[in-house]
Write a protein that binds this DNA or RNA. Structure first.
Lengths: 116, 116
DNA sequence: CCGTATCCGCCTTGATACTG
DNA sequence: CAGTATCAAGGCGGATACGG
């Protein structure tokens, strides 16, 4: 999301949410981590996304305090993510958005076919 | 939001929501229209946004069926927007997101000051 | 298995100026 | 009051390849 030219408005809850959780995959990542899909490899299998992009979004989620990252420095590298309380607080919202989307999938499909 | 290289996934409710309501001001526009701020001039006063950008986002909201647009072709042009049932169905979600943002404003503020 | 360095395309937002 | 045409900027997602 474009955000630099106009200063970020922390006075609006909607913008707070958008600024923190912009990014195409962030909410999905949080959702999957909540479902015990905690490792990068597994997450990548769930959502077909470029590794670099996924890592960037995960890094931001860590930075903002939505998830914690645990790196095990074993011979075969191992990484696990886990939701923080802040991350957990998003789950109800994610579920609501997901449900709304499922109920209104037809709208998007109509819009897409109409675009041609 | 960048969305072209990977085909849009209508199978995921979160993406349905995101695709339909990407855009920096769409949710705010819907919210203000629900509060009887229906005219372009008034909306522009509420959110300081470029007219062209606002119109584009409103056009998409119309196209996707979230709002209806009424143009009165009087001497002094007059336009009013109104939520459709689909638009109204978003209000609970918008309220939830807004509340979450208000409750967690500090997170964004911390993130912003940290960025320097 | 996991991370990152580099390169690229383009979409979105925003500013300005002008017309009906 | 409302709409649009044009111009500019840069952030973001994606692909590839390489290193630990």
């Amino acid at each position: 999301m474009y955000k630099k030219k106009i200063p970020i408005r922390t006075d609006c809850g909607l913008h707070v949410f958008k600024e923190l959780l912009n990014g195409k995959w962030k909410l999905m990542l949080i959702y999957y981590i909540s479902e015990e899909v905690k490792r990068p490899g597994a997450l990548q299998k769930k959502i077909a996304v470029d590794r670099r992009v996924m890592n960037k979004q995960l890094d931001e989620l860590v930075k903002y305090g939505f998830v914690d990252k645990f790196s095990f420095d074993t011979k075969i590298p191992k990484v696990e993510y886990q939701l923080t309380a802040l991350g957990v607080s998003l789950l109800p919202l994610i579920i609501s958005l997901e449900k709304w989307g499922e109920n209104n999938r037809a709208v998007l499909e109509a819009a897409l076919s109409e675009k041609q």
